[in-house]
């Protein structure tokens, strides 16, 4: 059993520029767009889709490591959300609500697809070569310093796929997308302690899976 300090210490979220925490104005605007969408205004729903499509796609893609699957799941998520929009009462933000649909849909898909894994990775953008974290990582004098970015990408995605769906989801939402523990708890319908615990064990497992490549 790990102490609270052990679980909390490694969970400091990295400062990311694309933190998807919804601003107050954005949330208000979301509500207006939701109300209009509930009145069959497709233009309003199109705005909501455009607002969240990149975040939802990223979540699903990092879970599946497959662009085609992610594309299907993102479309199904937004279609399903539109179907269920009448039942949206505004108890939570639209952002949490749509994430919840995407997360549940993706986890169900992965459970059905168990053991039929096929990587179809997106390209790494040119900014990656200038990312200080990646520069430091690749240039370190390690036994595998010949490891290039595309190899690292493949190894990392393979290691991610070895995690359970819930552990992978927590790493995706926190370490890659920068959501807070509280937001993840609201999305995954579990308490913050569970989120912290899952994150700790997921990182431990990832570290073990990648030990040969990143010594």
């Amino acid at each position: 059993m790990h102490t609270k300090d052990q679980l909390e210490k490694p969970t400091a979220p990295p400062p990311l520029p694309e933190l998807p925490e919804a601003a107050e104005g954005e949330e208000t605007s979301d509500l207006i767009l939701v109300r209009r969408s509930q009145d069959q205004d497709m233009g309003a729903y199109d705005q909501l889709v455009r607002r969240y499509q990149e975040r939802i796609y990223a979540t699903v893609y990092h879970m599946t490591s497959n662009h085609e699957d992610a594309n299907d799941l993102v479309q199904e998520t937004f279609v399903k959300a539109y179907r269920a929009l009448k039942s949206f009462k505004g108890d939570s933000s639209f952002y949490t609500w749509i994430y919840r649909i995407a997360v549940n849909k993706t986890i169900n898909f992965l459970k059905q697809r168990k053991n039929r894994i096929h990587l179809s990775l997106d390209d790494v953008d040119f900014n990656a070569e200038n990312d200080p974290d990646l520069v430091a990582l690749v240039s370190e004098k390690t036994p595998r310093r010949d490891l290039n970015l595309s190899e690292l990408q493949e190894k990392l995605n393979s290691a991610m796929l070895k995690l359970s769906e819930h552990h992978r989801m927590v790493v995706t939402l926190h370490d890659i997308q920068g959501l807070s523990h509280e937001e993840i708890g609201a999305i995954m319908d579990c308490n913050v302690g569970t989120v912290r615990s899952r994150l700790f064990y997921a990182r431990q497992q990832l570290q073990a899976h990648l030990a040969d490549y990143l010594k």
Binding site: Q6, K9, P10, P14, L16, E18, Y57, Y61, H62, H67, A70, N71, L121, D122, D123, V124, D125, N127, A128, D131, D133, L134, A136, L137, T142, L149, L152, Q153, L156, N157, V171, D175, I176, R203, Q204, L206, Q207, A208, L210, A211, Y213, L214, K215
Partner: peptide
């Protein structure tokens, strides 16, 4: 890689590559 279970700094750096994965233009 630092295998100390409480130090995930290298792992955090490696995960940075995931943020640079982008779908087709």
């Amino acid at each position: 890689m630092n295998t100390n279970p409480e130090n995930f700094e290298t792992l955090r750096k490696a995960l940075a590559i995931k943020r640079h994965e982008v779908p087709p233009p």
